[in-house]
């Protein structure tokens, strides 16, 4: 399509304005984190990242949390969604409502609700921050549910499951070796979003006094802004790389966080 000059100018000025607004903090972070003293430059802050034991502890905790959340996603959420889709169509609507509920409950409100449970857990069972994985598994539901149900509707899982059963596959084999592999793309995008969400979570962990990655970045930021900025930029790049690993079919034209996927 041939475009008029006016339209072209207009289009590029929009792109320029928005890009510079979005790129500005990122450039500034690069600049800020390589500052040493007044006028010198150096990688001191970047090198100091791993010499901060608390920060490394926070990173490890958040990675462990991400691993547990992924396990919950793969062995609890995905099988349940598939199971309801195949066997209990009557529960589809209620399940969808439960899965979308976290969108209507602001994180800060969820903290008010779960604080009692976590108080009880820390007194009677464990103070381990890994218990956060349960509430994180709830936070990821809206995103995982959408990508899973879109994937389930895209392939005819009913016929597949029936064929598997006729050929003598057990229920668990049908679920884990036949149905779930066919919706791999949906599962993968749910997985990546979950990791990004867990690594970026601050509200719940900070208010329940657990030392996760974001809580530690914030603490370091109170003393040494340069290191905190370096870590923030590093984790931004990490998440960007992670999202680039997404299955391309899903990335192509379609949005990652599209909670409205038909």
């Amino acid at each position: 399509m041939k475009r008029s000059l006016g339209q072209r100018i207009w289009r590029w000025s929009i792109l320029l304005v928005v890009t510079s607004y979005l790129a500005l903090p990122i450039v500034a972070m690069l600049d800020f984190s390589t500052k040493v003293g007044r006028s010198k430059r150096g990688l001191y802050a970047w090198k100091a990242i791993f010499s901060q034991p608390e920060l490394v502890g926070g990173i490890v905790t958040s990675l462990e949390l991400a691993a547990i959340v992924i396990a919950l996603l793969l062995f609890l959420v995905v099988p349940t969604v598939v199971w309801v889709h195949l066997k209990l169509p009557r529960l589809r609507r209620p399940l969808e409502l439960i899965c979308l509920l976290p969108l209507a409950i602001p994180g800060i409100v969820l903290v008010v609700g779960v604080s009692k449970i976590y108080m009880w857990l820390s007194i009677h069972w464990t103070e381990s921050p890994l218990t956060l994985s349960a509430v994180y598994a709830m936070l990821i539901l809206p995103y995982t549910y959408r990508s899973l149900s879109a994937a389930l509707f895209a392939v005819d899982v009913h016929t597949l499951a029936e064929a598997a059963r006729t050929l003598g596959a057990s229920t668990s084999r049908t679920l884990f070796q036949i149905v779930i592999p066919t919706i791999k793309a949906g599962v993968m995008s749910a997985l990546v979003i979950s990791i990004a969400l867990v690594l970026g979570e601050y509200t719940i962990s900070s208010l329940l006094n657990y030392k996760t990655f974001q809580v530690e970045i914030n603490l370091i930021g109170q003393n040494d802004g340069t290191i905190a900025v370096a870590v923030s930029l590093a984790s931004l790049i990490f998440v960007l790389l992670l999202l680039l690993l997404m299955p391309t079919a899903k990335r192509h034209g379609k949005a990652l966080l599209d909670v409205d996927a038909e």
Binding site: I217, L236, L244, L256
Partner: peptide, 18 residues
Amino acid sequence: VSATGVLAQFGGVMLAFG
């Protein structure tokens, strides 16, 4: 499409520091 996926998630502490 890729960048907005990250930036929409890029809230919280890291954004404040940015």
